[in-house]
Computed example of a mutant assay.
Amino acid sequence: MRSTKTITILGESILPGESKTIDMEIAKLHNTAKLKIPIIVSRSKIDGPIVLFSAGIHGDEINGVEIVRQIITKKINKPKTGTVVCIPIINMFGFVNMSRQFPDGRDLNRVFPGSKKGSLASRFAYHILTEIMPLVDYAVDFHAGGASRFNAPQIRLAPNNTELKILADVFNAPFTLYSKNIAGSFRNSSSKLNVKMLLFEGGKSLDINESIADAGIDGVKRILSHLNMLDPKHSIEKQEKNTIYIEKSAWIRAKCSGLLHDSGYIGSFVKKGTVLATITDPFGKFERKVKAPNDGYIINANHSPIVYQGDAIYHISKTIGDGK
Results as ranks from 00 to 15, higher is better:
residue 251 W to P: 07
residue 210 E to L: 11
residue 118 G to N: 07
residue 167 L to C: 00
residue 126 Y to L: 02
residue 314 Y to H: 14
residue 18 E to S: 04
residue 88 P to Q: 03
residue 193 L to D: 00
residue 96 V to L: 11
residue 156 R to I: 05
residue 36 K to L: 00
residue 244 I to R: 07
residue 34 K to P: 03
residue 100 R to G: 09
residue 25 E to T: 02
residue 192 K to A: 06
residue 284 G to D: 05
residue 165 K to C: 00
residue 261 H to N: 14
residue 259 L to M: 08
residue 257 S to D: 02
residue 314 Y to D: 11
residue 45 K to R: 12
residue 287 E to S: 15
residue 101 Q to D: 15
residue 67 I to P: 09
residue 244 I to V: 14
residue 222 R to T: 03
residue 158 A to T: 13
residue 50 I to V: 15
residue 47 D to E: 11
residue 28 K to M: 04
residue 109 N to T: 05
residue 159 P to V: 07
residue 173 A to D: 07
residue 168 A to P: 03
residue 41 V to K: 02
residue 192 K to C: 04
residue 310 G to S: 08
residue 193 L to C: 00
residue 236 I to R: 01
residue 108 L to A: 05
residue 324 K to H: 13
residue 61 E to G: 08
residue 293 P to G: 08
residue 146 G to I: 13
residue 234 H to E: 01
residue 105 G to H: 13
residue 100 R to C: 12
residue 91 N to G: 04
residue 117 K to M: 08
residue 320 I to V: 15
residue 285 K to A: 10
residue 242 N to Y: 04
residue 307 V to E: 04
residue 176 T to P: 07
residue 33 A to G: 00
residue 147 A to P: 05
residue 144 A to W: 12
residue 119 S to Q: 08
residue 293 P to Y: 10
residue 182 I to N: 06
residue 114 G to C: 06
residue 15 L to C: 07
residue 74 K to E: 14
residue 19 S to M: 05
residue 317 S to P: 10
residue 27 A to M: 04
residue 11 G to E: 03
residue 300 N to M: 15
residue 91 N to R: 04
residue 64 G to W: 11
residue 195 V to M: 00
residue 138 Y to V: 02
residue 188 N to H: 14
residue 173 A to K: 03
residue 108 L to P: 07
residue 249 S to Y: 15
residue 95 F to Y: 13
residue 217 I to L: 14
residue 73 T to A: 08
residue 124 F to V: 05
residue 128 I to N: 00
residue 55 A to G: 09
residue 177 L to Y: 13
residue 177 L to S: 10
residue 216 G to M: 09
residue 238 K to N: 02
residue 32 T to I: 06
residue 160 N to R: 11
residue 187 R to H: 08
residue 258 G to K: 02
residue 53 F to W: 12
residue 26 I to E: 03
residue 51 V to G: 01
residue 114 G to V: 03
residue 33 A to D: 05
residue 208 I to F: 06
residue 251 W to Y: 14
residue 285 K to Y: 09
residue 209 N to Q: 15
residue 57 I to L: 12
residue 186 F to K: 01
residue 261 H to C: 05
residue 293 P to D: 07
residue 111 V to R: 07
residue 68 V to N: 04
residue 83 T to Q: 06
residue 152 A to E: 15
residue 245 Y to A: 06
residue 277 A to Y: 09
residue 202 G to R: 11
